[in-house]
Nucleic acid binder design. Structure first.
Lengths: 346, 346
DNA sequence: TGTAATTATGCAAACGTTAGCATAATATTT
DNA sequence: AAATATTATGCTAACGTTTGCATAATTACA
C-alpha cells in the first residue's frame, strides 16, 4: 500500500509536508505543493480515511438503518429517494454513509446504538419515529448526535425534518369536502407512527372546519398497505350510509381500495372519490389517475443531512424542527377536473 | 471517550490483556477475563472499530453504490431487498456496509473506486453489469476484491451471482407458446445491460425450439419502464399481424402494457396474453393478476456477500459464477389457469 | 531436583495519519 | 544593520487498537 511516507520520500519532504499539501495548508510553497501533488499522482496515492479518522477522532461517516417494519409502512421508493438526498450532502462533506438493515424495531435500535458506540459513525439519521420511541429517547439521553425524519414525541430537545403531515392531510380532505363529499372515510397507516397520528389530526381538522363530526366507523388503520387497503375498503363500503369518499394515507392502500371499489361495482370518482398519499410512481398510471399528495422525500434527505452536519459542527446547536411542504397533485380520482377544469394544470 | 486503557487501569491489567480478553484469547485466565469483562460493562466500553481497522489494515466494511440509472432499470423493491440479503451476511461477519448514491454510470464508477482507493471498504458488490463495463474491467485489472450481481462480459476472471435470466425468459416464453400463442412480442429493457441480453436470448431460444423465427418488429427496448411499456405496447399492437402475446422484461412495463391494451379495447388474456418479470408487489393485485417470474433477490444478496467474504479470506479464491433459479408465478394474465386448472396451485 | 513445557501477562512497536512546537530561511520593518 | 515578522518545513507525539517477543509463574516430566 502506498502511504504518505512513500510520497514524502519520493518528493524529498517530510510526511508532515505531504499532509499539509493534502490539506492545502497556506504555509507550503507553491513549488513544493506542485511537486508533492505530482508524486501523489504518480504513485497513485490516496489518503487512508481510516488513519485520518483515528487521529481526528471522527469516523467521517453517518449511520442509517433500514428497518423492514418502517419500510413497509411507507410507499415504496421512499428509502432510495431519501438516501439519495442524504448522500449528496454527505458526499460534499467527504463523509460516507454506513448502512445496516433490520427486521424489526428492536434490531433497528440495537444497530443504531452499536454504530454509535463503536464509533463507526459520528451521528445517525432516524428514518421514522414511533409514538413512544425508546431509541430516540435513549439517543437524546446519551447525547449522541442524531436527527429524526418525522416528528418525535416526549423528548425535550431534538432536531428533525418532516413534511407537513397535518396540513397535507387537511388540504387533501378539504379538497374532498370542497367537491361536495360529506362522508369521508380515512384509511390510515399503523397508529404507532407519529406521521399517522398527524395525518389523522389533519383529517379531523378539515372535517370539523366543515362542521362534520368525526365518525370512528369511517376511520381504519392498516398494517399491510395493499391487502388492508383492499380489505378495509370492502368493510368501509358496507357501512350504512356509505362514505362518499376515501382518503388513503398511502397510494398503495389506494391501489387496494381501487380494486375493492371496482369489485363492488362502484365507479371512481362518480360513486366514490379517492385520494392517496405519497405520489407513488404508479399513481399517474392508475385508472383513473390518482389524486394524491407529493412529499419532498429527496429534499427531506438533504435537510436531514444538513441538520446533522450542523449539529456535528457546533455541538451546542439549537434544536430545531424543519417542516417541508407537500403538494396536492390533482388528477382524476376525485372528479375535480371535471367540476373545476382550471385545476387541470395544477 | 472510554478506551482500552481506561479498562486496563481499572481492572489492574495491561491494555494487551484487555485486548486479549476481547478476542477471547486462550492464554488469559478465567478470572482475569471475568474481571475485565465486568469492568468493560461498568464503564460501558466498546472497542473502537476505527482503531482496530487501522492496525488490521482492513476497514471491516463492504461498499455498495446505488445508481439512479441502474435502479430505474429494475422493478422497484430490488435495492432494499438485495441490501437486506447483503446486510445479514455482513452483520454476521461484524462488517459494516458503506453506501453511496450516484446519478449515472460515470459517478457510480467513480464512487466505487474512491471507496476502494481510500481504503474505506475492503471490497465492493456491483449491483448490475453493463455490456462493456469499464468499471468491472478496471476493478479486475487493479485486483480489487469485488463481486458482481449479474453477468459480466469480456473479463477473464471474476466472481458473480446471478439469476438464470436465459432460462427464466425461456420458460416464460415457452409458457406462452404452450398456451398456443405463436406471435410473441418482447418488451425488453435497455440493451446496455447484460441481463437484458440474456432475457432476449432466452426469448429466442424458446421461439426457435418451437420452429418460430424471431421477428425483429416484435422486439422493443424500453428506457423508462412504465411509460415505454405503454407507448411500445401501442406500437406493437398496431403491427399486422398483431402479436398474440406480450413478454415484458419487467412488471412495471407490463403495467404500462395493461393500460395500453385496455385502451385499445383488447382483453387480457383473451385477446393478448401478458407475462411479466420480477414479481413486483403489485403483480398479484393487477387486473387480471399478472403471471410473472420471481427472482430470488434477497438470496442473491446473501450469496453476493458470502462470495466477497470468500474472496477476502483466501485471496486466491477461485473465480466462480453462481446462478440462482427463478420461478414462474402463474396467475391469470395468460389464461393458463383456465386451460390447465392444475397450474392454479403452482 | 533440575529441565522443559505450558500458561498468564506485560512491554513496546506498529498501523497511516495530523498538528503543536521548533527551527531555519526569507522578507519586512525600524 | 539589527530586530522582528512571516513563510516554509521537519520532528515528534498522538489517536486506540493489536501482536510478537520477553518474562514470570506455574505445571509436567524425567
Amino acid at each position: 500500500m502506498v502511504t504518505i511516507k512513500d510520497v514524502a520520500k519520493m518528493a524529498n519532504v517530510s510526511p508532515s509536508t505531504v499532509s499539509r499539501v493534502i490539506a492545502d495548508h497556506k504555509h507550503i510553497s507553491a513549488e513544493t505543493k506542485e511537486r508533492v501533488r505530482k508524486v501523489m499522482k504518480e504513485l497513485g496515492y490516496h489518503p487512508n480515511v481510516i488513519a485520518r479518522s483515528l487521529i481526528k477522532r471522527s469516523s467521517q461517516a453517518l449511520g442509517l438503518v433500514l428497518s423492514r417494519s418502517t419500510e413497509s409502512a411507507f410507499s415504496n421508493p421512499f428509502f432510495p429517494e431519501i438516501l439519495r438526498g442524504i448522500s449528496t450532502v454527505t458526499q460534499s462533506h467527504h463523509y460516507s454513509l454506513v448502512l445496516a438493515a433490520a427486521e424489526n424495531y428492536q434490531e433497528e435500535a440495537k444497530q443504531y446504538l452499536r454504530m454509535l458506540m463503536e464509533k463507526r459513525v459520528d451521528g445517525v439519521i432516524i428514518l421514522a419515529s414511533r409514538v413512544n420511541d425508546e431509541l430516540i429517547q435513549r439517543l437524546a439521553e446519551e447525547e449522541y448526535p442524531f436527527v429524526v425524519v418525522g416528528r418525535a414525541q416526549g423528548i425535550k430537545e431534538y432536531t428533525s425534518v418532516n413534511n407537513d403531515n397535518i396540513q397535507a392531510a387537511y388540504l387533501a380532505v378539504r379538497h374532498l369536502l370542497n367537491l361536495g363529499n360529506q362522508r369521508i372515510a380515512f384509511l390510515n397507516g399503523p397508529e404507532e407512527y407519529t406521521f399517522c397520528q398527524d395525518r389523522f389530526q389533519g383529517y379531523c381538522m378539515a372535517l370539523r372546519e366543515y362542521g362534520i363530526e368525526v365518525n370512528g366507523d369511517y376511520v381504519r388503520n392498516a398494517e399491510n398497505l395493499q391487502e388492508d387497503g383492499y380489505r378495509l375498503t370492502k368493510e368501509l363500503m358496507s357501512i350504512e350510509p356509505r362514505p362518499h369518499a376515501l382518503f388513503a394515507a398511502d397510494d398503495l392502500m389506494a391501489i387496494g381500495a381501487y380494486r375493492a371499489l371496482k369489485e363492488e361495482g362502484l365507479s371512481i370518482p362518480d360513486d366514490v372519490a379517492v385520494i392517496g398519499f405519497n405520489d407513488n410512481y404508479l399513481a399517474a398510471f392508475m385508472e383513473p389517475p390518482l389524486t394524491t399528495v407529493r412529499i419532498p422525500i429527496y429534499e427531506m434527505g438533504v435537510v436531514a443531512a444538513q441538520l446533522i452536519f450542523h449539529i456535528l459542527q457546533n455541538k451546542e446547536a439549537c434544536a430545531q424542527q424543519r417542516i417541508l411542504s407537500s403538494q396536492l397533485i390533482v388528477r382524476e380520482s376525485c372528479g375535480a377536473k371535471r367540476k373545476f377544469p382550471e385545476l387541470a394544470g395544477k
